[in-house]
Computed example of a mutant assay.
Amino acid sequence: MDHQMLLKLGISALLGLIIGLERELKRKPVGLKTSLVISIISCLLTIVSIESSHIFNDGDNITMDPLRLAAQIVSGIGFLGAGVILRKENDSISGLTTAAIIWGAAGIGIAVGAGFYTEAFIGVILLIISVELLPFLITVFGPKQLREKELILQLKLANKHNIVETTASIKEKDITIKNIRIKDLDTGQLYIRMKVSVHQKRPTTEVYYEIQKISGIRSIEIENV
């Protein structure tokens, strides 16, 4: 076997390992093994595609596109990425970053298979910086909107007359109300569902205890978006 091919597969495995380790540490659905498989097989198919174009050529003229198989990898990975994108009950979408990283692992494998080693290493470095270092810098130095996290508050009030006082008390506790939904309950109580934002470093438990102190609230449920 050509040592160059072994080198390419080894490098793609190493870079896939780095990408997968980042996902594994965050306990994401697509972790170490999946990223390794995607990177290695993408590299292998790229090698096969390039080598096949030279083997099955018409004399000195290459009649087959060297990256024909590699082009299909990009579209094929989309089906795998779609499987990790989830819509939660609160209408929030999760898994987009993981889906993008799956696509990125395939791209790294293709780059290595095509012989672009330096570009592949730089790509992995920039990818890790983008998903690890950049979010941290944004939470420290970014604008206020990017330094906040969203929460879903579900409250039950004793009666309708407490709505204005309750929302005013929530705002006084440095909690921004983004939208609100109100529903009458058969028990005579009032159900309120709010999407609010607080500082990124503020513990959810602290928000819970602060709201618990507001009079007129019968029950509280808080969920991170």
Rank of each mutant, 00 (worst) to 15 (best):
E210G: 01
G76Y: 09
I129Q: 00
I122C: 05
E172P: 01
F116S: 05
I217T: 02
E148K: 15
A158V: 07
I41D: 03
H161P: 00
K183W: 03
R87L: 14
R27C: 01
A71N: 09
A111S: 14
G104F: 15
G20P: 02
A13I: 02
D58T: 13
L151E: 04
K88L: 13
T98Q: 09
Q145I: 15
I38T: 00
K195C: 08
S215N: 12
I77Q: 03
G10Y: 10
A120L: 08
G188I: 06
L6E: 05
I50M: 08
I41K: 00
G109E: 08
L155M: 07
S53K: 04
T176W: 03
E210L: 08
I55E: 07
L86G: 02
E223Q: 13
I128M: 11
G78D: 08
I214Y: 00
I214M: 00
I192F: 07
H199M: 15
G78S: 15
W103D: 05
I108R: 01
G76N: 05
S92T: 14
E223A: 12
I38V: 15
I73R: 03
S75T: 14
G104T: 13
G83K: 06
E132W: 13
L190D: 00
R147H: 04
S219P: 04
G20Q: 03
G59S: 05
L6Y: 14
L146D: 01
A105Q: 01
V207T: 14
T118S: 13
Q189H: 14
K26P: 07
D60K: 10
G10V: 11
I73E: 06
L6T: 08
L17W: 11
A168P: 00
L9M: 14
L36M: 12
S130G: 15
S35I: 04
A120I: 06
K149D: 11
S215K: 09
L32M: 10
I40L: 10
T46N: 03
L36S: 03
Q72L: 11
L21V: 06
I129L: 13
I101Q: 05
K88H: 11
S215M: 00
G104C: 12
R23Y: 08
G107M: 09
T118D: 11
K195G: 06
L151P: 06
E223I: 14
L25N: 07
I55A: 10
A99D: 13
A71L: 00
Y117C: 02
I192H: 07
K156L: 06
I50G: 00
I77N: 04
E221A: 15
L17C: 09
I18P: 02
G83W: 10
